[in-house]
Design a protein around this nucleic acid. Structure first.
Lengths: 356, 356
DNA sequence: TCGTTCTACTTGAACGATTTAGTACAACGA
DNA sequence: TCGTTGTACTAAATCGTTCAAGTAGAACGA
């Protein structure tokens, strides 16, 4: 089984190997009758079509693009934002008859370099034409391997100058709008919830410097602070674990239970905001009245929850990344997509009596 | 660039091609010093390691397993159950240094066979050693192609006898326990929420026969009915759209707003149950007191919500599927994993006054 | 001293396709 | 009638590895 090749088909059909190949790849290069005959003998021989590996080798095209898959991305799949982008990417991939190869890697961890290094070898073995560097740590050795291989690389959130394509939003500018919105509403004590790169077991309070090394989203953070201005007092916390509703809930609990509860809470993602919303509900607080809350991304659930947030074209981000990787006619190499502040009921004016 | 091959490295290092190959694949076959020299010249030449396509061709191993990726699976990624299974699969894949290839396909649709057929060609091009037939419709042409290719196929929820491996739970038996639990609590009017295979725009009421063709989960459905027994009156609904919290919410709304509101609601998944829970909250109903509710799967959020459900080893399902595909020492071909009814606060005795 | 075993490499044949350059033959216009 | 063009196919090289088989030389025991 399985050892039926182009040659066996060619012999059985009484034509040359190239003709059989053409029957599959270039139907206009041969007469309809011969093609018909070839395809029929292929069927009776149980030939399942050209061997993909051989085809990849000869044509120098893998018909697949890579996507790094760490534990973190596995969590990311619970995040509607990632799913939306992946859906956009898959749409283009389908259009180009191209697969999406998840490359399982150990997440970067300076504590155990040899394990990470070993898992990075998977990047060598990946049969891909290009790579979407999503959730791939800047220091991960797999990144070097990808560069060495000369893989076309596209990122949606990356600072690496070696990228062949970038699909961005103005993170900082968008975040600034959120900050300004909150400031204009009169809030002077604001909590910020960031995501956390490191594993902690509890909510940690973060200062501006720590944040740089602890979180993925300091552009947003900087934007928030810019928009809020110097007169607003800010308390930043990072929840334990990954970007999730659960994490948001614990961060929200932490902020809401403080003596000096902030009058507004800003989060770096809608998922975290939904968690904070839960924490508010549990405490009988009404969003937009007792405490204001804003998110980021505008995932579908944000509208249902009445969450003020920044809308970004999520699926479009994936689509463009896909085009950059797959469509030779798409020559743009750096796209900055528009965002929009969407004000909903979860933000409102600071109450004049800012006590509990 | 990129045209550095084993041969160029071999020439530069003054050794044979096989020696260079061995330097990468069988370090014990050559002396440490030669290996060192080879690796160094490889580095200076900018050789990124053996070309994966060529390696796949020669060794007849793709180092990747396939996963069908339709729009439906893209929604499935929002489902913690799928994510959990995928995480288990990825764990094993990482262990075996193997990639996970998502193969984008059009979902099966008898209305437009040619589009589906065309997209199924992606199954021909996939460089994979095996396939996890998850979310792959039984009638999808890609399934035939996979069979023709002689791909090793494993399923976690499939009736196809051509599968090389099955990782199952006793769906019907587990569902029966749920039904019995509800019956013993005294409920005599029960709503069942199933998932829907077809696209409808609103909640539809389903009878036993329709259900067969409309849903993916009729084993569970049959189990529910068996456990409930003949004395319980059942109203079955299928929400519009895919398995999601949102869908559960609308199905729940439909059942709860009926004149003859059921005293208990059973769903085929926790995700749907969480939606029903939302609908109950919106109506000020307390789960387990006013209306009982049970789910299926025991995703992490179920415990938080106090949801009665069936626990199944989710990640383990993915892990075993991975082993069946990748581990030659794993010879088991059909595994039925244990389940357990987990009773939490969302189910309680039927109230003696069963009126609104 | 001779045969045997071991180590460290090399040789050359696959793996299964695509692609370039060609050939044979028919059709065509002048 | 001859050269040109086009159609339908073929021959042979090539993609970059891995792997089975082979060899040269050192080391060893009797």
């Amino acid at each position: 089984m399985g050892n039926v090749t182009l040659r066996s088909v060619a012999e059985a059909a009484g034509v040359s190997v190239s003709t059989v190949s053409n029957a599959y790849n270039k139907p206009d290069q041969l007469s309809a009758e011969v093609r018909q005959r070839v395809l029929e003998t292929a069927k009776t021989l149980g030939y399942a079509g050209p061997n993909p590996a051989a085809r990849s080798l000869r044509s120098q095209r893998a018909r697949a693009i890579g996507l790094v898959f760490t534990e973190r991305l596995s969590y990311a799949f619970s995040d509607p934002y990632s799913v939306g982008m992946l859906a956009g990417l898959a749409e283009v991939a389908e259009e180009f008859q191209t697969g999406l190869l998840l490359i399982p890697l150990r997440p970067f961890d300076p504590e155990r370099p040899e394990e990470v290094e070993a898992s990075a070898e998977a990047m060598r073995a990946a049969v891909v034409d290009g790579l979407l560097a999503y959730c791939l740590d800047i220091d991960h050795p797999a990144r070097e391997i990808a560069v060495d291989r000369g893989l076309r690389m596209v990122a949606t959130d990356d600072k690496d100058p070696r990228m062949d394509g970038l699909v961005l939003i103005d993170e900082r500018g968008a975040a600034r709008q959120v900050g300004e919105h909150i400031r204009r509403l009169g809030h002077r004590s604001v909590g910020i919830v960031v995501d956390s790169k490191v594993d902690s077991s509890a909510v940690v309070e973060v200062d501006d410097v720590q944040h740089r090394s602890m979180s993925f989203s300091w552009d947003r953070y900087d934007g928030f602070r810019e928009g809020l201005g110097p007169d607003v007092s800010v308390q930043t916390v990072a929840p334990p674990g990954h970007n999730s509703v659960e994490a948001g809930r614990s961060a929200g609990a932490h902020l809401l239970d403080r003596q000096d509860r902030p009058t507004a809470i800003i989060t770096v993602s809608d998922v975290l905001a939904l968690g904070v919303l839960d924490a508010m509900r549990q405490r009988g607080l009404t969003p937009g009245r007792d405490v204001s809350l804003s998110g980021f991304d505008d995932i579908p659930a944000a509208a249902d929850a009445g969450l003020t947030t920044v809308r970004q074209p999520i699926a479009e981000r994936g689509r463009i990344a896909g085009r950059m990787l797959l469509d030779p006619d798409y020559t743009e190499r750096r796209i900055v997509l528009p965002t929009e502040l969407v004000v909903r009921s979860s933000t409102g004016p600071a109450t004049t009596s800012p006590t509990r």
